[in-house]
Structures are given as structure tokens and as C-alpha cells.
Design a protein around this nucleic acid. Structure first.
Lengths: 129, 129
DNA sequence: ACAACCTACAACCAAATGGTTGTATATTGG
DNA sequence: CCAATATACAACCATTTGGTTGTAGGTTGT
């Protein structure tokens, strides 16, 4: 089988898609603030919207971005959608950063698997001195 | 003095600007790959550019984004610019995520300081049940 | 039943993003 | 001095982003 990291034809992975979505979701201060609130406890979309100086639709879109990234989960309760932060998703982002720190420490088992080969030219990659 | 978190007039902080820049820099798989390489060791911009299937200018812009975020530092050596990953910056991003996890655990001293109040309406913020 | 509320989504807009090519400026090697 | 190399940056372009308003559908309380 050997397909553990779910490689696609072009070398990109679904993991990369998820990472893109999560980091993008976190790259906005309003969304980070929303995430803090929903990690502290469930909030309806309109309760969240009430906390910011922008339209309901804008906040709803931020919530949707967080949801698509997996950092936030919604649960229907009557006419409300209750949003909760997914702490496991947050942990998975943190583990990506730990992986980067491990690369720095040189403590990576198969560094060639982590350094994508998007193209060609088999660059010597100049190992750290 | 009491200005530890560097509040600006509008309630946003320079820390938020830095967080925006860092998460944005990380929200692109090419930049994450560049970051892995420069965390593993110094690379010139053109050496990096040689590893990707895009123009030199495109890679140079990615490096500039990483540099502006603080995740990457450049050092001049003759006609080359040698780029290195700043592991402390990576750690600081990871600590932001730990803070989020702490909020989830309810282990935050002054949660009201972490939940920005961009607007008004003193929403009850519905504490977790 | 029906008004009020909660949410989703479309359409639109200005600004930012990620890519391109082309040009300018240093630095190096011969 | 000159050619090649390394970098930076401007101008341009298509797409995405973050915001808006407006519309429509589901749920609730009276």
C-alpha cells in the first residue's frame, strides 16, 4: 500500500490543503478572536456577530472560513447554529510548528520526505553545517 | 506604565499585526516548504528558487513575505542573500496556539483580556456551562 | 397564522494575493 | 573592463479576500 501521507499526482497532499486552510483561517485577527470565544464555550453565530463592529454576514463568513478549516464545528439547536472550537484541530496546527522546530534541531528522521520536491533539479539542499 | 500588551487606540495590537503576518506567511505551502529548507540550513534566494517550478521573482516574493513576518532572516554574503529560518519566531507562533488551547481548558487567568472587545454592546459572552 | 428571529447565500466592490515579464543595480571572475 | 550572476522591484493580470446589502428559508413564540 505505502500511501500513508496521501500523495497526489502533483506532489501536493491533502494535508497541505488542510494546512493551507487552517493557517489561512488563523491569519485574521477577527477569526482568531472568534476562535478564542468558541474555544471558551459554545456561541450562536448571531451572538458572535453581536461582538464585532461589522455586519452579520461578514461574521457569518468568518465562521464559515473557520468551519471549512476544521478549527470550528457547528451544531444545530433549533433555529440557532452553535459554534464550538475544535481543540484537536488547534493541536494539529501546533504539531505542524513542532515539526518545523524539529527540522531546525536536525531531529528529523526522513528530512527528504518533509522537503517537498515540487519540481526537479535535485538541488543538493546544502545540509546545515 | 502598564502598557505591557501594547494596546493601540482602536484596540488592535502590534502583536495582532505580527500574528496576522506570521499566520499569513504560513498559509501557503510553497512558503512552508521554503521555511523548512531555511530551518534546516542557510540557502541563497536563487538556490531556493531553483527548487520550485515558478519564476525566480515569485520565489523572491515568497521569501520577502516570510522575512516581513519575521519567520525568516537574511544575511548578505557577497552578491548572495543567505536566508535562515528563525526558530524563535516559529516558537512564538506555537505559543499563540498553546494560548488557544489554554482558553479551551479554562486555564486562563484573565480571559476578558484575551477576548477583544472590538465594538460595544457588552455581550454577556455566555460563559461555558 | 404570522411576525420576529437566526442563518445562509448571492451579487457586488475595493483591496490584497500569487503569479508573470521586464528592468535596474551590485558583485564576482577573468 | 566586461560578462555572468544574484537580487530587487515595478508593472501588469487573474483570482481571492473581506467587506457590504439584499433576499430567501427555517424555527419559534404568541
Amino acid at each position: 500500500m505505502k500511501q500513508g501521507t496521501d500523495q497526489r499526482a502533483d506532489g501536493a497532499t491533502r494535508a497541505d490543503d488542510v494546512a493551507d486552510a487552517m493557517f489561512h483561517a488563523l491569519a485574521d485577527r477577527t477569526r482568531r478572536d472568534i476562535l478564542r470565544r468558541v474555544l471558551a464555550g459554545e456561541h450562536s453565530v448571531s451572538a458572535l456577530a453581536g461582538s464585532y463592529d461589522m455586519s452579520f454576514a461578514a461574521v457569518q463568513k468568518h465562521v464559515a472560513v473557520l468551519q471549512r478549516s476544521g478549527l470550528l464545528v457547528k451544531r444545530r439547536s433549533g433555529r440557532e447554529q452553535l459554534a464550538t472550537g475544535d481543540v484537536e484541530a488547534v493541536r494539529s496546527v501546533r504539531s505542524m510548528l513542532l515539526e518545523l522546530e524539529d527540522i531546525w534541531r536536525g531531529r528529523v528522521a526522513r528530512i527528504d520526505e518533509l522537503l517537498a520536491i515540487p519540481d526537479d533539479t535535485t538541488e543538493p539542499t546544502s545540509r546545515p553545517t
